[in-house]
Nucleic acid binder design. Sequence first.
DNA 1: CTGTTAGCGCGTTCAT
DNA 2: ATGAACGCGCTAACAG
Lengths: 347, 347
Amino acid sequence: MRPTVHDIAAEAGVSLATVDRVLNARVGVRAETRERVQAAVTRLGYVRDVAAANLAKSRSYAIRFILPDGDNPFMHALKAHVLQVGDPATRLGGLERLAVSLDPVPSLDVVALAAALDRAGEQGPAGIAVVAVDAPEVEAAIGRLTARGIPVATLVSDLPASGRRHFAGIDNIAAGRTAGGLMRRFLSGRSGPVAVIAGSLTLRDHRERLSGFADVLAQGAQALNLLPVLEGGDDPIRVETLAAKLIAEVPDLAGIYSLGAGDRGLIRALSAAPERRPQAVLLHELSPHTRQALEAGLVDAVLAQDPGHIARSAVRVLRAFADGTSFDPAQERIRIDIFLKDNLPPG
Amino acid sequence: MRPTVHDIAAEAGVSLATVDRVLNARVGVRAETRERVQAAVTRLGYVRDVAAANLAKSRSYAIRFILPDGDNPFMHALKAHVLQVGDPATRLGGLERLAVSLDPVPSLDVVALAAALDRAGEQGPAGIAVVAVDAPEVEAAIGRLTARGIPVATLVSDLPASGRRHFAGIDNIAAGRTAGGLMRRFLSGRSGPVAVIAGSLTLRDHRERLSGFADVLAQGAQALNLLPVLEGGDDPIRVETLAAKLIAEVPDLAGIYSLGAGDRGLIRALSAAPERRPQAVLLHELSPHTRQALEAGLVDAVLAQDPGHIARSAVRVLRAFADGTSFDPAQERIRIDIFLKDNLPPG
DNA sequence: CTGTTAGCGCGTTCAT
DNA sequence: ATGAACGCGCTAACAG
């Protein structure tokens, strides 16, 4: 049997209450007594039973997710996973006494986002997870939360200067570099210009992906020629227009890298003129549309981050911060997944 | 507050004991009483607090891992992760009352493996995780465990016919296909033969990878020519010999796919004659050696499965089986990771 | 068949 | 500065 507080108390010759005070670093214990208890703890190899402690405290972890209510498939999937994590019928929801709530916020509305952050803070949650937008208002709001001791994790798009405790998402510079590496390899030998379609360069993650990608294309013996970046606002319709024009006007186009959303438009443009499809097409995030395009050979590879992993990881990390315990960084690292048609997950 | 057994008892007008009997499907309750309790449960939306239940039962989950004590880096990493999962100081070890133990078994010794399985079963564990070897003795031993109601999960290499409840590892046919897809793309346009180095074709996972790879190379307009498979016994020294000979004797060699272990030998052979390196080199599993080779440009891509994920997943799944609860299949799917030099995890 | 009671390991009053 | 006693939500003896 693992030693319990009783064993510690007996070993140290004190009462349970004193052991508790020492274990929780509370005041009102003589230094000498404290020593005795600590000695007993290490001697017996005591480790606190967190489950029992939480039961006694009837603690529950209120975690708030603030997500853009945009309509892109990735955010939809993320929302679904957050709800699933909070479902009391599941392991995390049940066993781990979580109370997950979800606040939708108009997409890219920095004022609304800052307000939502402040409001969430009022409820005194155990932690807050938010898809950050790169704006001073948001940065300040996160700073206020942090100052009040509420751990904040950014999701998908980071805001390091805000003081957030954690970022759950991929390294977007590395993602861009990865796309660059694939592009080079898929185009081996061949020359011809490469196009990039972004959502908006005001988005930090898009800027980062672009910079990593451009970096890799420029380096090495045979640099690839990068066309001026197109911005489609993550909107399928605008993206389709841009892509169709691109394909029509650049006959020797070698590759396309779409680093934002709105890929439905790109896919439509590609399937409208299959004979002019460039040799390599790369895009981000798995959705029914991108899956299908990959399976159909319209797209060569999809870079992705797993929304289920992001949701679960944010919860685990925020819980750990709330408890003051540690977590396994390797487990919480969000991978840059590369999907070809052959390693697609089922479903 | 979430409703508790007390609320149910009050609502149904019975005692706690009766509620407990109904909740745990124990005998000795009149059908009519049972109905009343169940009605109260659904009316109040009761869900059992698993943590409290486990506390009361002072239940702990004994999970045994049976792993080959071979010296390859992947198995080493897997072992380390298993130990970490079992560490009482971690979340899983502490909060979740696990007692993980590790039985090493001589690599590829089917008799010893079967004996270890039988022995593990004697201890009455909550679950057993094992790296299966494709042999009738092993299959039978797993069958005996399953028959006794002990859930078994195979790790890395599967044995579906054994009756194991779960497999934690990648789909190796898909992994082979993925390697094939990368090989085709990396060799786009270029022809020339492609070599495969396996450990041993008596290993199910190696056979499966080969079959998926060969499949993809053969299909499509321009089939790639596959040389006869080389078997290096997962031994760096034998692999080095084979690879060196291959590189020397096949001047127009376009690609190499190493689908087993012993890659240290392959890497040595490649760096000994860098000017004759084929255009595409693919191999499996991340290790200090393969990382370095990737970074040095000696290897183009590494396919991998995350040993940390496998260890954690096996524990979660076996616990779920022991409890008769469900788990999230998407969370437990082991991904076929593709690493280029640009999306390598840190460390 | 059903109810009472005493813990599981810990946190938290309220006394001393 | 320290200790005794009760309760968190649930299970398991033992009564009845």
